[in-house]
Nucleic acid binder design. Structure first.
Lengths: 271, 271
DNA sequence: TGCCGCCGTTTCGCACTCCGAAACGGTGCG
DNA sequence: CGCACCGTTTCGGAGTGCGAAACGGCGGCA
C-alpha cells in the first residue's frame, strides 16, 4: 500500500517545476486534484520552506530549498542505475561477479555488485567496500583514465597516507610506468602482491559525456579457473569494454529523459 | 494545518540525499521515524520511481528521477527570492513600484512587482507581463548588459518578428548606438514613443556570479512628478544600482546556503 | 452603481487512510 | 544452538486527511 498524500505532493512538486509560478487554478487544471487539497499540500510545502506564496509573484513559487531534495544526487548513482542491468546480465552469462566502483576521496567504493547473484564468488559481501586507489583493479581502472588534475589531487591525499597499499604514491617513476601500461592496454588488474591471492579482478573505466571517467567496472574470478591471467583478460576485457560503452550510452539516455515522465523502457540487454 | 505524512516524506527525501545509499535502520536513526512508517514512505517513492531498493546496492538509493523535483528551478526564481525584500523596502521608502524582470525567449517577463504595495502606480497588474526587449526599460536593462552571444541569439529571434516594438532589431547602427549609450550610463529607460507616455521606467541589470546578467530591476514613476527625466534618473539610478549589488550578494549567499537547513536569516534591509 | 463570475481560502463532519506496537522470517555471529 | 539485529508484514483503532459546500474578495461589465 502506498501513501496517497505523498504521491499527490510529489505530483504537485513536479507541476510546480514546470512553471516559474503557479496559481491554485493552474495546479488544479494540471494535476486534477481538488483545490482544498492543493491548498493543504502547498501550505505544508510552505511550512517547510520549499515554496512561497506571494501575490506579487503571481502565486506559488519554488524556493531555492527544493534543490536540497535532489542535491545529494550526483551523477554517481546514475551510472549504477544505468549499469545495473548489464552487470546482472553479464553475471548471468559468465557466472563471475561484476562490480561497479566510484571514487570517494582516498579510495574507490564498490557501489554495486552482483556478488549476491553469483554462485562462484571469492567474496561474501562487497558493497560499500573501500578499495585502495593504486593496488586494486577497480581503483586503477578509474585512476589511470582520470584527467591529470584529478589524478594529482588524489595523489596529494595518498602521499600523506600511512597505508602500505598506497606506497606507490611516493614512487612517481614506478607509478607512471604502471599507469601508462594500463592506459595502453585499456584495462587494469589487481596488484599481484595484495590479498586475496587466489582471485583476480579485471577493471575498465566507464566514461561519461565529455570523456570524463564516471566509474570503473570490474569482473572478479578465481585464478585457478584459468591457465594464466593473460587468458582470462583476453576473454573478459572485450566483454567489459563493450558493456562499458553500453552503460555510457544508457547514462546519456537517462540524462535526456530525466524531465520526461515516461515509464522506464528496459534497455536492450546482451543476450 | 499541515499534512504530516508529506512532511515526513520530505524529511526522508532529505536524508536519502545525504548518503549514496541508506538502510532502513540508518533512516530510522537520522529521522527518528518508526520503521514501518519508513517502509511505507519508501515504498511510495519506489512506486513513483524516485528511489530503488536493491540489496546489491546496500539499501535504498535515489534514482535520476528525483532531479525532476527541482529541475524546473533554474536560478531564475532565486534572484526574485533574493530581490524581493529589497524591492519591498525600496517601495516603502520611495513610494514608486519596483519590478524584477527575467528573460523568456522573445521578451522579458515581469516575475516580481511591488505594484500591489504601491499606492502610486501607473499600472494595475504587472506580474507575468511580457515586455519587448528593445523598447522597454526592463528589456533593455537586461539586453544591453548581456554577453555578445546571448544578444545575438535574442536578435535572431526578433528579426523574424513582425511586432513594431522590435523594429530596432533590423536597424543595427541605431541599435548599437542605443546599447552603447545604455552601457556607458549604466541604466536603461523606456523608449519615449511607446505607451504609456505619462509614466517612465528606469532599469538596471542584476549580475550573478561570473558577471552574467540574471535579471533587470526597475522603478516606475509618473513623469509629471519630476521636472525632467534627468532629474528622476539622478535620484533613482544610484539607489537601484546599490540595491542591485545587494541582491547579487544575497543570491550568492543563498547559493551557498542551499544545502544547509538553517532557517532563513533576514537580510539587512536598507533603512 | 450593482450584479455576476472567478479565484483562493476556510469550514466541518464523515470515512478511510495512515499509524505504529507487536509479531514474523531471515541472516550473521559467537 | 541461541542470540541479536534487520527489514518487512500484520492488524485494529483513531486520528488525520478529505472534499463538497460555503465564504469573502476582487475585477469586469453593463
Amino acid at each position: 500500500m502506498t501513501i496517497r498524500s505523498i504521491q499527490r505532493a510529489l505530483q504537485v512538486l513536479q507541476a510546480l517545476n514546470c512553471q516559474p509560478s503557479s496559481t491554485i487554478a493552474a495546479l488544479h487544471q494540471t494535476t486534477g486534484l481538488p483545490k482544498p487539497t492543493l491548498v493543504r499540500i502547498l501550505r505544508t510545502f510552505e511550512a517547510d520552506g520549499y515554496v512561497e506564496n506571494d501575490s506579487r509573484q503571481g502565486g506559488y513559487v519554488l524556493t531555492a530549498r527544493v534543490v536540497s531534495l535532489s542535491a545529494g544526487f550526483h551523477s554517481d548513482p546514475l551510472v549504477v542505475e544505468a549499469g545495473r542491468a548489464w552487470a546482472i546480465a553479464l553475471t548471468r552469462k559468465h557466472r563471475w561477479p561484476i562490480s561497479i566502483a566510484l571514487p570517494d576521496t582516498d579510495a574507490v567504493v564498490v557501489r554495486f555488485s552482483t556478488v549476491p547473484d553469483s554462485a562462484m564468488s571469492p567474496f561474501h559481501k562487497t558493497v560499500n567496500m573501500r578499495l585502495a586507489w593504486l593496488t586494486r583493479a577497480l581503483g586503477l581502472g578509474y585512476f589511470a583514465f582520470a584527467p591529470d588534475d584529478e589524478r594529482e589531487l588524489i595523489l596529494s591525499m595518498l602521499r600523506n597516507d600511512q597505508q602500505a597499499e598506497n606506497d606507490l604514491a611516493r614512487q612517481p617513476q614506478m607509478l607512471d610506468r604502471l599507469i601508462s601500461g594500463i592506459r595502453a592496454r585499456g584495462f587494469a588488474t589487481r596488484a599481484e602482491y595484495v590479498e586475496p591471492r587466489n582471485s583476480d579482478t579485471i577493471a575498465v573505466p566507464i566514461f561519461g559525456q565529455g570523456g570524463r571517467v564516471l566509474a570503473s567496472l570490474g569482473i572478479t574470478y578465481f585464478r585457478s579457473a584459468f591457465p594464466s591471467a593473460t587468458e582470462a583478460c583476453g576473454r573478459y576485457v572485450p566483454i567489459l569494454q563493450a558493456a562499458s560503452r553500453e552503460i555510457s550510452e544508457e547514462v546519456a539516455r537517462i540524462l535526456c529523459a530525466v524531465h520526461g515522465k515516461s515509464p522506464d523502457t528496459p534497455p536492450d540487454l546482451p543476450n
